[in-house]
Amino acid sequence: MSRLQLDALRERLLVAGVAPRHVRRYLGELRHHFDDLLRAETGNGLSGEAAMRAARARLGSDESLANAMLAKPGARSMTARYPWLVFGLLPPLALIVGFALVVIATQQVAINGGAYIPRQGFVAPAPIWLVWFLQGTMLAINFLVVPLLGVLLAWVAQRQRMKLLWPALGMALLLVLHVHGIFRMDAQGRIGRGFSTIIPLPGLFGSVRFYWPVFLAQAALLCLPLAWLWRARSKATQ
């Protein structure tokens, strides 16, 4: 393993918006190059620290290495170039499209299980397996998928060393739009399921409803990745 320390260079490149995959590859090749230089300097008769210093000088300063990478066209990541798209537009869009796909998938499961007749709706009383299945699905998407999307935003922000503001904005949008699944069953065993958001969307989405318990639970769960990110940043600056 190379003894070359490139942490400062890595941080500088990531903060400047260079895509993490480019940074990883660059640093990997620099380490291999440094090892070759070290071997050459040792072969030239230098030993220990002197060989290390000579090899590091030949490799180039952090400044020149960073500038060379920053001058490369296309080095900046999409996250760094379009943060409003990655953190602002994509998460709510992904959630809405994802929820629509879940509606279609659950409907297909119900049709295959003989519990849903096309153009008529769910059979009543609904079989118990369907009740469990739909309840489980709604719980999972409300309390698992939404927080996981928050984790994804925090991870993307951390990878690119983005300001905390961006993932916080994405999570706030997810919360404010309040895209959530709904499951209902009446006394006759007729079930209804759908999705709601504060944006009135036709088709698969039901009427506009705001469920405070779901909202608050999602808010609490979304705070966790944000808190993790804040802690990681605080640790890094110490």
């Binding site: 620099l30 190059h33 490799l59 020149s64 060379a68 001058a71």
Partner: peptide
């Protein structure tokens, strides 16, 4: 040149 700068090229 700083040898490492060859990689971005």
């Amino acid at each position: 040149l700083g040898e490492g700068v060859v990689y971005p090229v």
